[in-house]
């Protein structure tokens, strides 16, 4: 299989969907002529033209709302946020309109839209550009939330998200855009709500999404080679819908769960998984559910301290060892 970047995998997904369905269009700040702030949409404006790939003013509320209105009429907008952190100036449009219109209309209206962009810390840009709002968004029935960790998942999940008839909040990661991975040529979809066991193991379940999955895989190698512990790594891939079955099956097998999450701990995604395990896996557990998350403080600017704020492999290893 060809080896391509996470960025290219997304770009391929857009190109294929733009070609397949004339109702699909891309919109956002700098997505067209500038080729994307992170080059995710590079070349698409040149190839598909100004009708399909559209630069917007810096007006998140208006272009997110425009996306909702256009989606109600049957178009399939793929709206880029340069950072998910910028969603907050358009939050009303996401939560109240994209998230609630289907329900409040008694199912008369659908909002088949993808809102996408990077949502991660760790890039030394301070708190306002480092938010990870997957927990906020997944807290809203009506929205779906997807966080791919690998190029293969990024492409398959993006195509599935564009074809989905509900609004999907698709969270990428600037630190992953350059990662290489095997991605088959041509179109394929990965269903939302299906987790992926990225590494099998019998001793402990490491449950994560997004870049934290890679942290878990690195930790699993250390645990295996240095401590003789075989960790299973469960990549959630989507936060909502959530593949509860795969999580519970894994914990039933390993009897231990360490949740690794670049989201904040307080009411974060890992808190949700912990609640799930408390409710449905209590009898399977041989140890308390433990968490390694972003530290519960705004993202700090200072580079060495920021590194301390996010989970790394050593922290995961230490946490796993503490559960034995």
């Amino acid at each position: 299989m060809p080896l391509i970047t996470y960025r290219q995998a997304l770009n391929d997904a857009f190109a294929e969907e733009l070609t397949r369905d004339e109702n699909v269009f891309l919109m956002g700040e700098e997505v067209a002529q500038y080729n994307g702030a992170y080059k995710v949409t590079e070349g698409l404006w040149k190839r598909f033209g100004s009708k399909r790939v559209i630069d917007t003013p810096i007006s998140e509320a208006a272009f997110l709302g425009l996306g909702v209105g256009a989606a109600m009429m049957g178009l399939r907008p793929v709206v880029e946020l340069m950072f998910w952190s910028f969603a907050y100036v358009g939050f009303d449009q996401i939560m109240n309109n994209a998230g609630c219109i289907r329900y409040m209309s008694g199912g008369l209206i659908n909002v088949p839209m993808v809102i996408r962009g990077p949502a991660n810390g760790g890039t030394n840009v301070g708190a306002t550009h480092s938010h990870t709002p997957e927990n906020f968004l997944a807290n809203t029935p009506g929205l779906k939330v997807v966080c791919p960790a690998t190029p293969y998942d990024a492409k398959g999940l993006m195509i599935a998200s564009i074809r989905d008839n509900d609004t999907v909040c698709f969270m990428e990661n600037t630190l992953l855009y350059g990662d290489l991975g095997e991605v088959p040529d041509g179109s394929y979809t990965i269903p939302l709500g299906v987790a992926d066991v990225k590494r099998e193991g019998l001793d402990v379940s490491l449950i994560a999404h997004g870049r934290a999955v890679l942290t878990c895989l690195a930790a699993a190698e250390i645990l295996a080679t240095e401590h003789g512990i075989e960790a299973e790594v469960v990549d959630l891939r989507s936060i909502r819908p959530l593949d509860e079955e795969t999580i519970l099956n894994s914990v039933a097998k390993t009897h231990r769960a360490v949740l690794v999450d670049e989201n904040k701990p307080f009411c974060g995604v890992s808190a949700q998984i912990a609640a799930l395990l408390a409710e449905h896996a209590f009898d399977d557990l041989d140890a308390p559910v433990l968490r390694v998350t972003a530290l519960d403080a705004p993202a700090i600017y200072s580079m060495p301290l920021e590194k301390l704020q996010l989970p790394d492999a050593q922290a995961v290893v230490a946490k796993v060892l503490s559960s034995f």
């Binding site: 209309s105 199912g107 659908n110 779906k144 074809r163 008839n165 819908p241 949700q272």
Partner: peptide, 23 residues
């Protein structure tokens, strides 16, 4: 629990994977 997700209401393939609602 109806009229939240199109895919769930219409029992599409996309509406049959994962858990949309907690527990």
């Amino acid at each position: 629990f109806e009229d939240i997700y199109h895919e769930v209401d219409h029992k599409t393939e996309a509406g049959q994977t994962g858990s949309f609602f907690f527990s």
